Structure formats: C-alpha cells, structure tokens
Computed example of a mutant assay.
Amino acid sequence: MSDDHTNVQAFFTARAADWDTRFPDDGPAYAAAVAETGLREGDRVLDAGCGTGRALSALRAAVGPSGVVVGVDLTPAMLDAAVRAGRDGQGHLLLADVAALPLRPASLDVVFGAGLVSHLARPAENLRELARVVRPGGTLALFHPIGRAALARRQGRQITPGDLRAEANLGPLLATAGWTLTSYADEDDRFLALAVRER
C-alpha cells in the first residue's frame, strides 16, 4: 500500500467512530445532491469513497429496489461504521480502492463521490478509473455538503489557486480523464460538480 493510501486510511480511521455525530445535519444536502444526478429507477450507482455510507439511503431511494447501489471505501473502520449504522442494507459495501475498482467496464450509470477529489492520490488516473466503470453518457457527481470557502474556514486555512475543486482546475482535469464538466456549484451550503462520461 502506498504512503498516500496509508495517510488516507490513518486520517479516516481516526475519525470513523464519531464521523456521523460530527456532521449530523448533512442528510438533506446529500439527498438534494443525489436528486441532481438524474438517477432513475433501476439504475446502477457507485458511491466512491462512501465512508460511513451517508449517501446510501438517498441513492437507494433514487434507484429503487430494482437498482444497484455499491459503496466502496479504502478504510475498514469507515465501512464498519456504515454497518453499525445499518447502512449495509441500502447497498453492497466493498473494501476497495477507487484506483482499481473490482467492477466491469461501463457497468454503472452514475458515480457519486462525496468529499472524494481532495483525497485522490493520483486525481487524473483515479478519475479515469471512475470513467472506466461508467457507461458512455453516464454521470459523475462530485459533492461536498459545504463549499470550498466554508470548508477552508472550518479547517482554518485559505483556498489556494491549486485547489483541484476550483472550476478552472476541475474542468480540464476531468477532461483529461474522459469526462465533460456540465454544471458547477460552489456555494457556502454545498459544492456540486456534475460531469458526463464522454461517448
């Protein structure tokens, strides 16, 4: 396992037990973001970097009982917390790395990634792997329940010009990985970038 992976695992392992109680009011923001993905009954969706599974119930509601919901995370403690919260009933939970997904090419309609981009070890490569598992015309939703400026304030730091989530950086990054950025919102109460898998 690379140092990047070890660092991500260490960060989230230390926070897994109280993750949900630290941010108890994010549920409606997740549900609103999922609603914007265009998911339909029977669709197949991946929650990439699912953590404690806070998006899973909204994703399951969107695809219905005939749809497929898969949650993938690199950190066992986060998946354990998802199971303790009963969220494993909303989808299949897999311990896996978004850099090498155990999924067939073009097998999904949508990838949902909450707080994902800033934790990717090799962003272009990792976003290309997400593109591999999505059908042409499928959607990538990169979400955070608060925007970049609000998150920076919460963490006591400044936004830097190199922030991958800045629209000027994210659009070209997605394009190199097989995605076209179609909408971008960076407001205090949400961050949501939607992209379409190129045909």
Rank of each mutant, 00 (worst) to 15 (best):
L142I: 12
G91M: 08
A96H: 14
P136Q: 01
R148M: 15
A99L: 03
L151C: 04
L93D: 02
L103I: 13
S107H: 00
A99Y: 15
A106V: 09
V111A: 09
A99N: 08
R104C: 00
V110P: 00
L95D: 10
F112I: 11
L142G: 11
A141K: 07
A141F: 12
L93Q: 05
H92V: 12
R122K: 10
G115F: 14
F143L: 07
L101G: 00
P123I: 04
P123C: 09
L95K: 03
P102W: 14
Q90T: 10
A141Y: 06
A131W: 00
L116F: 10
N126M: 13
I146A: 09
V98G: 07
F112R: 07
T139Q: 02
A150P: 11
E125H: 14
L101N: 06
P123H: 01
L151Q: 02
L116R: 01
R148V: 15
L103S: 08
E129W: 13
H92T: 13
H119C: 12
A149Q: 06
S118E: 15
D109T: 07
L95Y: 12
A100S: 08
A152M: 01
F112P: 01
P105Q: 05
A149C: 06
P102M: 08
L127T: 11
A141V: 09
D97T: 14
L101P: 03
A141I: 09
A141M: 09
A124K: 14
S118T: 13
A121P: 13
L95G: 05
A150Y: 14
A149N: 06
R135A: 12
A121W: 15
A106W: 01
R128I: 04
A114H: 07
L103D: 10
Q90L: 08
G138F: 00
L151T: 03
G91S: 03
A149S: 10
S118Y: 13
R132I: 02
N126Q: 11
L142A: 13
F143W: 11
L108Y: 08
A121L: 13
A141P: 06
A96L: 05
L94F: 03
G115Y: 07
V117C: 04
A152C: 02
L130Y: 05
R148Y: 07
N126L: 03
L108A: 06
A131D: 11
P145M: 13
A106S: 03
E129G: 15
E125K: 08
T139G: 02
D97S: 07
V98E: 10
A100F: 14
